[in-house]
């Protein structure tokens, strides 16, 4: 693997609240190389968004980062230690410059009373040394690039005059105009209809190839992950439970939680297959289970072990790791007697 663009090591994030210190992310490590898409999957409350926001220092002020947590961004020339950026000026260079983010709800990332074009120009002038004219030209070029017709006219319109899919495209154009090294996409297609989702996914793939940047793609939809990601990381209650190449994780999931997620998915290739939910509910972050965080819902739990100690990360395939005692002292890949029911995974 080439040099990673971003590297998170032992990331632990807690929040001060009225009800005490809440652990949102615990001991999470990952890296993303240029041109690579890492899909981050997990239920609501799993810590996906907190993890993503930490990369840009966007978490609220009551967030506490552990002492040995480290986030390193390589901008091609130098290493930047993100967690040590203290001044607003330094932080602003990262946000929207080296790292851009796109959101689920595009209306929320455009100011309603300023034209789309003006916002794009403002961002470019802040992060580059372009003058107004150059910035406007590049913005129109970017709007064209993401497939917005009549880009020059659209440039002078407001976000509310755009349709949902078009707004999402405009947001992508704005996020990419500064040529960031890392793009964070937080559920960018969740609010869209399937037909528009397919268009946006295609666009994102094209652009990632073009711009050769690293992408952190957050979603709860494993189908979207299968279509976009190179590697997948599965999070649950703040812990990274599995991390590996998309084909391996979807075809031979190593962690019982990943297996459960795949089995809970309604599949179009087998309408008779029963839908099997992951039993129970995700525990409250105030009551984090001891040991493996998933043991309270796990069907393969080993009594006296999973509820006592936290499993280490175990390599179970080519760059495929999982934190589960079931793989302890087994040869790689031997996830023997509890694998998913279907051998081949296909949706059509």
């Amino acid at each position: 693997m080439s040099t990673p663009v971003i590297k998170a090591e032992n990331l632990t994030i807690r929040f001060h609240t009225d009800e005490g210190l809440i652990t949102a992310v615990e001991n999470v490590s990952f890296e993303i190389a240029a041109g690579e898409v890492l899909g981050l999957v997990g239920e609501s409350g799993s810590g996906k968004s907190v993890t993503a926001k930490s990369l840009m220092l966007l978490n609220a002020d009551n967030a506490v980062y552990d002492d040995n947590s480290r986030i390193t961004l390589y901008d091609g020339k130098q290493e930047i230690n993100i967690l040590s950026l203290n001044s607003q000026r330094e932080r602003r260079q990262i946000r929207g410059g080296l790292i851009s983010m796109i959101f689920q709800e595009p209306m929320a990332s455009f100011a309603p009373a300023i034209t789309v074009g003006k916002q794009m120009v403002e961002q470019l002038m802040l992060h580059t040394d372009m003058n107004k004219k150059e910035a406007a030209n590049l913005s129109i070029e970017m709007l064209e690039r993401v497939g917005i017709a009549d880009a020059a006219q659209r440039f002078n319109q407001y976000a509310f005059e755009f349709s949902g899919g078009m707004r999402q495209r405009a947001m992508i154009a704005m996020a990419l105009s500064t040529r960031p090294r890392l793009l964070i996409a937080d559920e960018p297609t969740t609010a869209l209809d399937v037909t528009i989702q397919a268009q946006v996914i295609d666009l994102m793939k094209e652009i990632v190839d073009d711009f050769n940047m690293a992408v952190l793609f957050i979603t709860h939809d494993l189908g979207v992950i299968a279509q976009t990601a190179d590697r997948v990381a599965v999070m649950y209650l703040g812990r990274l439970l599995e991390n590996g190449p998309v084909r391996e994780v979807i075809r031979q999931p190593g962690h019982p939680y990943t297996q459960g997620l795949l089995q809970a998915l309604p599949r179009l290739d087998d309408l008779d297959a029963p839908l099997s939910p992951v039993p129970g509910d995700i525990p409250s972050p105030l009551e984090r289970p001891p040991g493996c965080v998933f043991h309270t819902r796990c069907t393969a739990k080993i009594d006296g072990r999973c509820d006592q100690s936290v499993p280490d990360e175990i390599i179970i395939g080519n760059q495929h790791k999982t934190s589960c005692f079931l793989h302890d002292s087994e040869p790689p890949g031997a996830a023997a007697n509890y694998t998913t029911s279907s051998g081949t995974v296909s949706n059509q």
Binding site: Q227, L265, Q348
Partner: peptide, 17 residues
């Protein structure tokens, strides 16, 4: 055909609207 397939090798085969 717009439903994202769970098969990573099925990319881009869909008929796009």
């Amino acid at each position: 055909s717009a439903i994202p397939s769970l098969d990573p090798d099925d990319r881009g085969r869909a008929q796009k609207l």
